[in-house]
């Protein structure tokens, strides 16, 4: 359950959602080097961060690098952690920004290439294969414009609440809804295109 408190400072008139009490406890202990707390934070949050990075980058190696970098930044931030946002939200935002950086570097290294959907059309036999289907969806998501891809991953795949996903992406809920609508429309068209004709 999230706790709502008033914080001191210029925004003291606004109630802020703070980290779960168990998060706060674990963060404090992890900052002091408590191995059990560190393990708990890693076990709780690394799957979500890795999943987000995998969907955004469609490259497992790069996704693991992003996950590592995200946690390195988290460990550095722990001692001075101010619970103005949920730790989960903050962590996913860091991961998302690292994904954006990675995608930007990719674009810079491949100048002139237009962002387009990956050609994931498969033979009828391959289309029956579940893993190929999953791969096709994963590639189609990562081929979406990055903000659409992030919105879809956070909401439809990871089940973040609307408010939380909007906070991670630093957009309004209305903007998030618009990104989601465009993402779903493009993805549906792509999946229809590659599905075998009746």
């Amino acid at each position: 359950m999230a706790i709502v408190v008033r914080v001191s400072g210029p925004e003291s008139d606004k109630p802020c959602r703070v980290a779960f009490s168990s998060d706060l406890d674990q963060i404090t202990r992890a900052a002091a080097g408590d191995a059990a707390a560190v393990r708990a934070l890693v076990n709780r949050y690394s799957p979500g961060v890795l999943s987000l990075a995998t969907c955004m980058l469609s490259d497992r190696g790069e996704a693991e690098d992003v996950t590592q970098e995200t946690f390195i930044r988290a460990w550095k931030a722990l001692p001075g952690w101010e619970p103005r946002a949920k730790f989960s939200t903050w962590l996913h935002r860091v991961a998302l920004n690292l994904c954006y950086d990675g995608l930007r570097k990719r674009r810079e290294s491949l100048p002139g290439e237009l962002p387009d959907l990956a050609d994931t059309r498969l033979s009828p036999q391959e289309a029956l294969d579940q893993s190929q289907r999953v791969l096709a969806i994963e590639q189609a998501i990562s081929a979406l414009p990055e903000r659409q891809s992030a919105a879809l991953t956070l909401c439809a795949l990871q089940g973040h609440s609307q408010a939380e996903a909007a906070e991670i992406m630093d957009v309004s809920v209305e903007a998030l809804e618009s990104l989601l609508a465009r993402a779903r429309r493009t993805l549906r068209a792509h999946l229809l295109e590659r599905s075998p004709s009746p």
């Binding site: 992890a30 900052a31 002091a32 080097g33 191995a35 560190v38 393990r39 890693v42 076990n43 690394s46 799957p47 890795l50 999943s51 995998t54 693991e64 996950t67 590592q68 946690f71 390195i72 460990w75 722990l78 001692p79 579940q130 289907r133 999953v134 969806i137 994963e138 879809l152 439809a156 795949l157 999946l191």
Partner: peptide, 23 residues
């Protein structure tokens, strides 16, 4: 179609690296 996407689990080596990088 989206619900068929499998959950992603970090490999043990990655988990170990994340823990090793902690304070």
């Amino acid at each position: 179609a989206l619900a068929r996407m499998p959950d992603v689990f970090p490999p043990p080596a990655l988990t170990a690296a994340l823990i090793a990088s902690a304070p």
